[in-house]
Design a protein around this nucleic acid. Structure first.
Lengths: 121, 121
DNA sequence: CAGCATCCGGGATGATACTG
DNA sequence: CAGTATCATCCCGGATGCTG
């Protein structure tokens, strides 16, 4: 079992140094909105409008930007149907599901301990 | 096993809604520098100067600010020794270690898959 | 050595209006 | 409905200088 950054570095080399790809990925998936969008999509496929409502407080601009980033990262798949009115659906890719498999335990912990942590502030 | 946001909400109530404590905690521990500082401390106790060097690219201001936030969240412990010159050590609290136990698998996944994800950009 | 105070620029973010 | 375009704003975060 991995218990330290040193161990991760041993097996993966120069990770989390400045300019390292790991920093970029961290910025994408651990960003304010990135986590919440990924989390919403863990439930399954969602339409644009559904995401806008599910991820409370997100602006259209940030939703679009976040989705584009995650899509270009290969974590989210975008499917648009040539209908009128337009319908676009977003879902996790296999890679995205793999990611969430590792992120959900963390998120669950946060959900359980948030009150404990924040109460001190 | 938890596989969706809905399941987390069922057991924990209104989480990840606007203004919810979970949002605040997420902002702290998933912030750009928060993750990296926590990660550095997973190796064990570190002095201020060590952290400054270990977390590449962080400014003094952000290191101080990040540490203060994490300390008030009860995730990081600060110990100052009344010596000249001053010596201050930071380490994870029990709560912090519990958190990292859940975050490390995610970080490890990122380290392994970062190149795959970023290559597309 | 370990920080805090202050200033300040720019990118991140929000609000609004508009379009295919 | 699903976005884009534009403009205004805010605050993150860097640089610098100082202190115990």
């Amino acid at each position: 079992m991995v218990v330290s950054l040193a161990q991760i570095r041993e097996s993966s080399g120069e990770v989390f140094m400045e300019g390292c790809p790991t920093r970029v990925v961290l910025d994408h998936i651990m960003s304010k909105w990135g986590v919440l969008v990924l989390l919403a999509l863990t439930d399954g496929t969602h339409r644009w409008g559904e995401l806008r409502r599910e991820v409370e407080g997100i602006s259209e601009k940030m939703l679009a930007s976040t989705l584009r980033t995650l899509e270009s990262d290969g974590l989210v798949a975008r499917t648009s149907y040539p209908e009128v009115p337009p319908r676009v659906e977003y879902s996790l890719t296999d890679l995205g599901r793999e990611l969430m498999q590792h992120m959900l335990p963390l998120v669950e912990w946060v959900a359980r301990n948030a009150d404990t942590v924040v109460a001190r502030a």
